[in-house]
């Protein structure tokens, strides 16, 4: 892993729990419909602006910054889970 970077990768089950929690508490979302595979737009009825807000909430929840180019690729809960699990500085 090279020089000491204090990187800590989070446990996947924990991340999944937290990601789904964030999505369920978004006002426009019906919490009953939320699964790890849920697509924000086609399954949960959000638009691209809502998706930006959801990604912002992930940033706040995990204390990290998600670059615009990366954020665009997060379209499902699973995308978010994968991204965060792979991120060395997520909290």
């Amino acid at each position: 892993m090279g020089a000491r970077s204090f990187a800590t990768f989070l446990d996947r089950a924990d991340v999944t729990d937290r990601v789904l929690g964030v999505v369920k508490s978004f006002e426009k979302v019906d919490p009953a419909k939320v699964t790890a595979k849920s697509h924000f737009v086609s399954d949960l009825g959000l638009d691209s602006l809502d998706t930006v807000e959801v990604v912002m909430a992930f940033e706040d929840e995990f204390t990290l910054e998600i670059e615009d180019k990366e954020a665009e690729k997060i379209q499902t809960c699973e995308d978010a889970i994968n991204f965060i699990c792979a991120h060395p500085h997520a909290k």
């Binding site: 800590t8 989070l10 924990d14 729990d17 929690g21 369920k24 508490s25 909430a57 706040d60 929840e61």
Partner: peptide, 20 residues
Amino acid sequence: MHGLRQTAATRLARSARLFS
């Protein structure tokens, strides 16, 4: 720090606050 667990209740409360 690594793998710190939170109860479901506190997590939900935190999530709700993210959107408040």
